[in-house]
């Protein structure tokens, strides 16, 4: 295995584009090293991104949003008070990943590109309308987060392409987000179902919303019908029933040892409803 430490994204992209064997990027390594140890993935070229300047930084963008470096670990997101104030749902999704030790390494970009349908930080990013900046052999482009996962363990990134930043839009006023997951334990487990809601209020009425579900399809999914179910409402009981029904209808989970299809569908509805309530309370400025 060749271990590369490029100092720019262009160089990292060129190494990946020119590699003939199995290639992996190395961010926190909490998926890559586990896969290497299991013999599942034995890269010929391992491209460590952490030496690229800026990869560990979180900065405000000109439009009031955020640019998050691809090597920023969960612990640094959790420690960033203003990012957390803007996007508590995004941050709490990442903070659910693993233990204190895993938090010291694991990144948003790694969580996204590992391609797990149950990746805990991804529904929050999708609901937030986050985008990723991709650097590749043909230059760079920006795409919505939901366009990255292609199926379990697969992404839509082409050979030589990598994510060079995660971008969150400006949060603006009267808005809130939330991510909830169901696991049988209290920590250190893989989501049976995850749900994220981001919304903006005009007075008491929901003016904008995005809803995303995890672990109920081959990829994390954006569920526009669930958002439509609450837009224009004050999140009254009828709206809560409507988002529950829409989330259940969109959930197409498998049955496995973590939960049956029926159970996951049921939980998708419950979590979507609860996440909407918390996001609404946060938009109202209540600490929930």
């Amino acid at each position: 295995m060749r271990y590369h430490t490029p100092s720019t994204y262009e160089e990292a992209s060129a190494v990946a584009a020119g590699a003939s064997g199995l290639t992996r990027f190395l961010a926190g390594g909490t998926d890559v090293l586990v896969q290497m140890r299991a013999g599942m993935v034995l890269p010929d070229d391992l491209i460590d991104l952490k030496k690229i300047p800026g990869t560990s930084e979180i900065s405000r963008t000109e439009d009031g949003g955020w640019r998050i470096g691809v090597a920023v670990p969960g612990i640094a997101l959790g420690a960033h008070a203003s990012l957390k104030a803007d996007w508590p749902g995004v941050v709490e999704g990442m903070e659910l990943v693993g233990s204190t030790q895993i938090q010291g390494r694991a990144t948003l970009a790694g969580n996204l590109c590992n391609g797990s349908p149950a990746a805990d930080s991804v529904p929050g990013l999708v609901a937030a309308g986050a985008t990723v900046e991709i650097t590749g052999p043909d230059g760079s482009r920006t795409v919505p987060v939901e366009d990255i996962p292609a199926g379990p363990g697969k992404t839509n990134l082409a050979k030589g392409e990598l994510i060079s930043a995660i971008l969150l839009p400006a949060r603006g006023q009267n808005a809130g987000d939330c991510y909830l997951r169901f696991i049988p334990r209290t920590e250190m487990d893989i989501a049976v179902v995850g749900a994220a809601v981001s919304l903006r209020l005009d007075g008491d009425t929901i003016a904008e919303a995005r809803v995303s579900l995890g672990a109920v399809a081959p990829t994390v999914i954006l569920v526009p019908e669930a958002a439509d179910a609450i837009i224009g409402t004050t999140l009254d009981d009828a709206a809560l029933s409507a988002i529950e029904a829409a989330a259940k209808a969109a959930a197409k989970p498998i049955s496995d040892k973590r939960g049956t299809t029926e159970f996951r569908v049921e939980i998708a509805g419950v979590l979507a409803k609860r996440a909407a309530k918390i996001a609404y309370a946060r938009a109202k400025g209540e600490t929930a």
Binding site: Y3, T30, L33, V34, R37, P73, T100, Q101, G104
Partner: peptide, 23 residues
Amino acid sequence: GTGDCGACSVELDGTLVCSCLVL
């Protein structure tokens, strides 16, 4: 060897990590 048990915990530049998940 897979990040689950913490028996390999060390600090790397002051951050708590599993040394089995660091090269």
